[in-house]
Simulated scan of single mutants.
Amino acid sequence: MFTGIVQGKAQLIDSDKKEGLYTYTFKFPDDQSNTRIGSSVAINGTCLTVVKVDQYQLTFDLMQETLRLTSLGQLKPGDVVNYEHAARIGDEIGGHLMSGHVHCTAPLVAMHTSENNLALIFEVPSEWSRYIFPKGFIGVNGASLTVGDCNAQQFTVNLIPETLRVTTFGDLQEGHLVNIEIDPQTQSIVDTIERVLPTLIRQQAATE
């Protein structure tokens, strides 16, 4: 599990792309020697398993399903990503619990800059937009963010300077894809209501 609090930015320094399997090596800003092979690290919100450790570098294998569901397949050497190591028992949950399982990708369709604030507007597939509500949680490239405005296709997040400093959001441009993880509690509530409510309405109608 992850908290959605991005710990920093890592740079892709090597990519080995084979059919159905990509191997990426990232350089981190701090020593990763204590990271064990088999550990989980969220890269742009995608839970990946460490397969090699080399002081400031970690290597991961990306399978076909990961490449299909996320934007990671578009990365090239030199690109920078958000990262977070898996949470440990006792860690502060400053964001919201996240699994690192990406539901979909979303393009950045607009951005609005004002003093000390950056508003980003993303467009999501309709099958996922029903889980997004104003003031609700959403994971965007591994960051736990609060939804501002939203409609049937788009949602807005507002970023403060500290978020921009720690993450890669300040480097996004219109058209860039981000990884989206829907808040699982919201998804569970919406799915339950959609499943149960028609039955309750029919039962109510039958008693009238």
Rank of each mutant, 00 (worst) to 15 (best):
P29Q: 05
T23P: 01
V50Y: 00
D171L: 07
R88S: 13
M98G: 03
N116F: 03
S188D: 08
R88G: 06
E127K: 11
L172A: 03
N44D: 15
L62Y: 03
E208Q: 10
M1E: 02
S144Y: 11
Y131F: 15
L200E: 03
V109T: 15
G90V: 12
H85A: 02
N117L: 08
F28H: 13
T163S: 14
S144L: 10
S40R: 14
S144N: 13
K17S: 13
V6P: 02
F2C: 04
F60R: 07
A152Y: 00
I160A: 11
H112R: 13
V190N: 08
T163Q: 09
V50F: 00
E162K: 05
I182T: 10
D16S: 11
Q11E: 15
Q32H: 01
A42W: 03
L197C: 01
I5E: 13
T35C: 09
T66K: 11
F155D: 01
V140G: 06
Q64I: 12
S99K: 12
G175A: 12
I138W: 04
I43N: 14
S33D: 08
K52V: 03
L12C: 03
I37D: 04
S129F: 03
H101L: 13
T35R: 10
I160D: 05
S15L: 13
E92P: 03
G95D: 02
E162T: 12
C104D: 06
T66I: 12
F133H: 05
D171F: 00
I93S: 02
D16A: 08
N34A: 11
R130E: 12
T49S: 14
G4D: 05
V102D: 04
P161Q: 10
D91G: 10
S144I: 11
Y56R: 15
L69P: 00
H112E: 15
V109E: 02
D54T: 09
A119M: 08
I43E: 07
H101T: 10
R130M: 06
I132Q: 07
T25I: 01
Y131E: 03
V124D: 08
R68S: 09
Q173V: 04
H176F: 08
Q154Y: 01
E194Q: 13
K27L: 10
Y56T: 06
Q185H: 12
P77Q: 11
T35G: 01
L67E: 01
Q7C: 01
T163R: 02
Q173F: 00
N117R: 07
S39Y: 07
A206Q: 11
T207V: 06
Y131A: 05
V51Y: 06
C150K: 09
Y131M: 10
S15A: 15
G148I: 02
Q185S: 11
F155H: 01
F137T: 12
F155T: 07
L75R: 06
V53R: 05
I180W: 09
L172M: 08
V124T: 09
H96E: 14
F26G: 02
S99P: 12
I193Q: 07
A106G: 02
V102F: 04
E92C: 09
M111N: 08
Q173G: 01
V124F: 04
E115K: 14
A87S: 14
N151S: 11
S126Q: 11
E208M: 08
A10K: 06
K27G: 12
D16G: 00
L12I: 02
I182C: 13
E174C: 08
M1I: 06
Q173A: 04
